[in-house]
């Protein structure tokens, strides 16, 4: 696509995108770190994740300020408008994802008193969720709608994994009521990871809107897929 005639506007849009991506990078790191802290029993790392969430929150505020300025001063239209709207929504998903990582880090600190079991399942889910998040950031960076579709498709398998973790933990808690607090904690970590996957899907949906103008939220995957691919072929 050609650059804007007004260079300053072009610069503002580029700066906004770069800031969203760097926020995305921080969030991704927070998720990985929180899981690493959990799996390696590393409270120091967990505390770092909690501390750094402030920086993520600050970026959310910065980005919101940038989008407000662009809306008020540049009156963006068409693809620029879709980019701004997507950014406003994506930033919320990223900030929440940061909170999920913080939640995992907090759970890790608490779990020092009640050691968790079934960590393999959580690790497996974490790998999937972080892969989804990474892909979501990539598809935003590149405007890759096919990658976005694959993220939406993968949501089912993440949900399936989380349900398995729920079942495992329920059985575990039923066997021995002393294990209830550990079980609940594992459940809550699993829930956070599943939510991270959901946020990645939200981001992917907004990328499709940003690139093609199609709103694929709350419609079945086949319809969404047909919409997106028909636009690519034409």
């Amino acid at each position: 696509m050609k650059d804007h005639t007004v260079r300053r506007f072009e610069d503002e849009l580029n700066e906004l995108k770069a800031t969203v991506l760097s926020m995305g990078g921080m969030v991704e790191k927070a998720v990985r770190r929180s899981m690493k802290a959990l799996l390696e029993h590393d409270p120091k790392r967990a505390r770092k994740v909690i501390e750094r969430d402030d920086k993520i929150n600050q970026l959310e505020r910065d980005i919101d300020q940038m989008t407000r300025n662009i809306l008020a001063l540049r009156q963006p239209a068409a693809s620029d408008l879709r980019f701004i709207i997507s950014t406003i929504k994506i930033v919320t998903d990223l900030e929440r994802t940061g909170d999920m990582a913080e939640g995992i880090a907090e759970a890790m600190l608490k779990s020092q008193e009640t050691p968790l079991t079934h960590l393999e399942s959580l690790e497996e889910l974490a790998l999937k969720a972080t892969a989804q998040l990474k892909k979501a950031l990539d598809c935003f960076a590149r405007g890759d709608v096919l990658l976005a579709l694959s993220i939406i498709e993968n949501e089912k398998s993440i949900n399936g994994m989380f349900q398995r973790i729920q079942r495992e933990n329920l059985t575990y808690m039923l066997e021995d009521h002393r294990k209830i607090s550990a079980g609940l904690m594992a459940y809550s970590i699993g829930k956070n990871l599943e939510r991270i996957g959901d946020h990645a899907v939200n981001i992917a949906e907004m990328v499709i809107y940003m690139v093609q103008g199609h709103d694929v939220r709350h419609i079945d995957h086949e319809t969404a897929s047909a919409l997106v691919t028909s636009n690519i072929e034409s």
Binding site: T5, A77, A78, G213
Partner: peptide, 20 residues
Amino acid sequence: QIFTAPTHQKTEDYITGRFG
């Protein structure tokens, strides 16, 4: 539709200020 998701690249370029 024209101002949120125009179909033609030329329209897009014009209304987003990428013209010329």
